[in-house]
Design a protein around this nucleic acid. Structure first.
Lengths: 154, 154
DNA sequence: GGAAACCGGACGGAGGAGGTCCTATTTCGG
DNA sequence: CCGAAATAGGACCTCCTCCGTCCGGTTTCC
């Protein structure tokens, strides 16, 4: 139903918790965040692993290790999180170079016309930061979408 | 991967074919459209049934029956098609009134903050018509998204 | 050297989407 | 009056993807 995956949802929650000030403002462990978010610990660990692979958080190994935000919440765009978990934002499979999987590729009237739609979605998600979703204590920055991106003429 | 369902994709194709002028500009049968789009006939029939239920096309029964567009392609918003097949546009399950399904509902830092995101997606999809996806022969109308909807302040 | 924590991958179950088919109903044409 | 053509509305089954979990390996601090 045009849903993003549950992992993405969890990731926003985890990032929001990591961003709020506390006793350990910088370094947080997976078990600790699991307890604080109310999510099961293996799931939180998986989320953090993916976030680390994407470069949105930094993982420090060893005892007294943990995860640390690489940049503050207002600088993390929602689109970055979505891409990390759901892959490139593309509403249809008919995007990346025609690999012949589409049977009616030749003479398809909508060939290549989904790109402006994808760009519009991407733009919408890029205009919202995790700070916007985390709460009012974070400092949101206003965002004006570029009209050219909403319906890009070729 | 933030994909919309295949049926939605097919629906756009079918609508695009229905909109282009031809020998029978108004009335088209499911088998005929199947042959013209290259899609399997039962699938096209299913798509048309759903489109008819949503009021986007009108079905005429009996021999010499078929389907007819209710309004021209430039008046059909992509969001209408998406809603018809994928249901209400909501990126997360945490939207409609808290039914207790969310375990960490109380004290959830992102509670209710997804609504602006959903509105932004909805706005992006509403700003594109099937005519925009069908080809240049249809008359596109320029669209300027409302910045207020992209990141609605409460 | 042991404990704590991250890293990477693998595995199985559950849920939803996709595709097909069947029957009933309506309408046109002979 | 009857048969053909086409829509209407389901039911059904299969397959694929996501989700949650777990395991072994590695790194670092006490």
């Amino acid at each position: 139903m045009l849903r993003l995956s549950k992992l993405t949802d969890y990731a926003v929650l985890v990032l929001a918790r990591m961003g709020e000030p506390g006793p350990q403002p910088a370094l947080q462990t997976a078990p600790g965040l699991a307890g604080r978010t109310g999510l099961p610990e293996p799931t939180v660990a998986k989320v953090l692993k993916i976030l680390a692979q994407s470069g949105l958080v930094e993982g420090l190994r060893g005892a007294k290790g943990g995860y640390r935000l690489v940049k503050p919440l207002p600088d993390i765009r929602l689109s970055e999180v979505v891409v990390a978990f759901d892959g490139p934002i593309a509403l249809t499979a008919c995007v990346e170079g025609g690999d012949g999987s589409c049977s009616a590729e030749a003479g398809c009237p909508v060939r290549g016309r989904w790109d402006p739609v994808n760009a519009a979605i991407r733009n919408a998600l890029a205009g919202i930061t995790i700070a916007d979703l985390a709460g009012p204590e974070a400092t949101p920055r206003p965002f004006i979408p570029d009209p050219e991106l909403s319906l890009a003429a070729e």
